[in-house]
Design a protein around this nucleic acid. Structure first.
Length: 463
RNA sequence: GGUCCCAUCGUCUAUCGGUUAGGACACAUGGUUUUCAUCCAUGAAAGAGGGGUUCGAUUCCCCUUGGGACCGCCA
């Protein structure tokens, strides 16, 4: 059995986190089964589709490492084919022209509302042999949906789904302006692309019943469907673009690593035993639609941070630094070469207290900025004794050729003895002097991460 | 309102009729540590309710309750 999957976003906004997961699942299933994964840009909404969003979607997926096969398909390029199919459906009695005006439809809707009954298009033109065709009205084309019986879809995630055909109205497949609607375009393109597995959000379930009828009317093979549960916001509603942290960009800009986000999304609605961390290859090997749950899952930002932290802690440091450089050049600022080397040298402890790349950026500010701001409160921590100690420390440092850990350790030890203080008594003023903060890296890491001249210069400012 | 769907710790989930209901995140406490962290240990925390079926139900069925999705000439 072959596996040809696709992700089909519309370029009407930035890539949504739910869309990312849909793409991931499609990609995973295709890769696992040595099949194909295509990207199709559904840009038939001329009003809202934007070239910039198309570009953004493609680069976002690339950032995540979800690479599509072939070049991306642009749906609008296939419109003439869609129109041809609409006409073929009419010819074969599966569709018809409807001359109802929008006013007429709205009136019907109003009426239904008043009477408290659900609106369904009244199929006025379905078998309208006797009606006079208005001369100056452009018709829409509606699909002749089945009136009786039931349609069953064996959904790979949801199981068997059964719906009464009477609940599906004669939906529009070609607009008044002769442009195809989603139901038509998606079906025709999925068929043309020989898609075998349609994995999409649960909000498309009803569409599958409609589209199945088109497949059958055309005598085409119906693909497998898998409707994955939606991702909900903290409020328990379908995640919308207005929610915080709904788009991929929201995660990129706070310094989430792509592998971490991919891992989080993988485990949202899917699981494999007690396993939490999956390499890309593991996720391909282990992924399976049968492991996908049926109920929607809430987005949990603390979990994303946690997984990201795991990646930051365990990633090869060179690789981590590459992520960091990419991140800051995009969202912060590019570092000069010398600073870059200093930060890289210190990444092993800077990453220790970081959950995100942004945290590493924050933690490395004392290296990046030559000017250190010390708050009044912290200045008060440096009392006369501290100043004496620091003067001694500076003098000893100046005697050293270069810094090394052993010498620094014995120096600090001797200063503790000499001034009858403890480690904190000497460590804290040095830390404040070098970073402006009470908190930070270990004293020796801290001193060694800066140039000797820089250490002396900074400390001289506080005595 | 109509149609369809879902239901295990706060969150993500494991369990495929017999378990002290497991793990992870978050939370709390303790330990390691020169600070903040890290790290380690420990703890608290769940089968929505009611009926069946069964020797036995979290697991199968029904009802109730709660939640969600869809109901566009958007996709």
């Amino acid at each position: 059995m072959s596996f040809i999957c696709r992700f089909a976003p519309s370029p009407t906004g930035p890539l949504h986190i739910g869309g990312v997961r849909t793409a991931l699942f499609n990609w995973l299933l295709a890769k696992k089964n040595k099949g194909k994964y295509f990207l199709r840009i559904e840009d038939t909404d001329k009003e809202r589709s934007k070239e910039e969003f198309k570009k953004q979607i493609i680069s976002s997926l690339e950032w995540l490492g979800i690479q599509h096969d072939d070049k991306e398909y642009i749906q609008s390029k296939n419109i003439s084919k869609h129109i041809k199919i609409a006409e073929e459906l009419i010819k074969n009695g599966f569709a018809y022209r409807c001359y109802c005006t929008e006013e007429e439809i709205n009136e019907q809707k109003e009426n239904c509302k008043k009477r408290g009954i659900p609106y369904v298009y009244n199929r006025k033109w379905r078998d309208a042999k006797d009606l006079n065709i208005p001369k100056n009205l452009q018709p829409v084309i509606r699909f002749k949906s089945k009136i009786s019986g039931n349609t069953i879809i064996k959904d790979l995630v949801q199981g068997e789904r059964n719906i009464s055909n009477s609940t599906i109205e004669d939906f529009i497949i070609l607009r008044k302006d002769k442009s195809p609607t989603y139901q038509l375009s998606a079906t025709v393109d999925d068929h043309e692309m020989k898609i075998t597995h349609v994995i999409r959000g649960d909000d498309h379930m009803i569409n599958s019943f409609k589209q199945k009828q088109i497949y059958e009317a055309m005598g085409w093979k119906v693909p497998n469907f898998a409707h994955i549960p939606l991702i909900h916001s903290e409020k328990g509603k379908k995640l919308s673009k207005r929610d915080n942290a709904a788009t991929l960009e929201d995660y990129m800009k706070i310094g989430i690593i792509s592998d971490a986000l991919r891992n989080y999304l993988l485990r949202l609605g899917w699981s494999y035993k007690d396993k939490e961390i999956f390499s890309k290859q593991e996720s391909i090997d282990l992924f399976d639609l049968t492991g996908v749950g049926k109920s929607p899952s809430k987005l949990d930002i603390s979990r994303i941070y946690s997984i990201n932290e795991t990646y930051i802690k365990t990633l090869d440091e060179k690789e981590l630094f590459d992520h960091f450089k990419e991140y800051i050049s995009k969202y912060k600022k590019k570092l000069e070469k010398s600073k870059e080397a200093q930060v890289f040298k210190s990444i092993s402890f800077l990453k220790n207290k970081a959950k995100t790349l942004e945290d590493i950026w924050e933690n490395s500010q004392y290296i990046i900025n030559d000017k250190i701001d010390i708050s009044e409160e912290n200045k008060r921590l440096i009392d006369d004794l501290s100043k004496k100690i620091i003067i001694d420390f500076i003098n000893e440092c100046e005697k050293m050729k270069t810094f090394n850990r052993e010498e620094l350790e014995s120096l600090i030890k001797s200063l503790i003895n000499k001034h009858k203080t403890n480690f904190k008594g000497i460590g804290q003023p040095i830390r404040v002097g070098l970073t402006g903060s009470k908190f930070g890296p270990g004293i020796f890491d801290l001193i060694l991460s800066l140039e000797k001249s820089d250490v002396i210069q900074r400390l001289k400012k506080i005595i």
